[in-house]
């Protein structure tokens, strides 16, 4: 523990706190949701962490286009992969919840479509990368697609769900996670949970980037 950086310790503490308190602390009893409201600490936080990590990916993509540093490309692509992992976790937790609450693993809903489209974007990103053999070209073209995809994704998940009613909590008059029914107790876990999962994601990213940098170093020698 002694040689761990402070934010890694914070990640461990916050995630442990989220898991323990998330399952044990009292939650408000709401119709339909009942105890499944605890999914707030795991499902919703995954999307927060995913957006943060994908934003990291885009920022490094922009940096690559400006400076052409190999390192930025490594961070950008690895962040996209971590983002996909978080996206899959977010979809899985959401799907499990939906099966218990709505009685179906998947429904045609703007928010779910947004999630599916975000994942499709980044799968396409990985396929694009694998289709470009030349390193410099791969970095540049995929950075361009990354910026394009991220902006479009923000437009889609920001605008489209507001256009129609939705079954999803927080839309169309359903008891949501935000606002009136998120009591003090839940906020005490929800906000630390966002920070905890995001830090954990950054930790995974830093490990993967370190690994990739080492691999390149060995290959170049």
């Amino acid at each position: 523990m002694a040689n761990l950086k402070w934010w890694k310790i914070a990640a461990i503490v916050l995630v442990l706190y989220t898991i323990i308190a998330g399952f044990l602390m009292p939650v408000p009893t709401l119709p339909i949701l009942h105890e499944s409201i605890r999914n707030l600490y795991f499902h919703v936080t995954m999307w927060f962490a995913m957006i943060i990590i994908l934003a990291v990916s885009v920022v490094h993509g922009v940096k690559f286009l400006n400076k052409g540093q190999r390192y930025n490309d490594i961070v950008s692509s690895e962040a996209a992969k971590v983002g996909i992992l978080l996206g899959i976790l977010g979809t899985t937790t959401g799907s499990l919840w939906a099966n218990n609450t709505w009685g179906a693993w998947w429904v045609n809903d703007p928010k779910l479509n947004g999630a599916a489209i975000s994942l499709l974007f980044y799968f396409a990103y990985l396929i694009l990368r694998s289709a470009l053999p030349d390193e410099d070209k791969r970095a540049r073209v995929s950075a361009i697609y990354n910026i394009f995809a991220f902006t479009m994704m923000l437009v889609f998940i920001g605008v489209l769900p507001r256009m129609t009613d939705s079954l999803h909590p927080g839309n169309g008059g359903n008891p949501g996670f935000g606002g009136y029914d998120l009591d003090g107790n839940m906020k005490m876990i929800f906000y630390p949970a966002i920070i905890g999962w995001s830090l954990l994601a950054v930790w995974i990213l830093s490990l993967r980037v370190g690994f990739k940098v080492l691999v390149e170093k060995i290959q170049n020698n």
Binding site: N113, F121, I127, L128, Y145, M152
Partner: peptide
């Protein structure tokens, strides 16, 4: 324009554009 960089095959065009076209 992006797909042309991968020696422009048709499937790449579809893969890259579908996430944008669907919404």
């Amino acid at each position: 324009a992006i797909a042309a960089k991968t020696n422009g095959n048709f499937s790449m065009m579809a893969i890259l554009s579908f996430p944008m076209l669907i919404p």
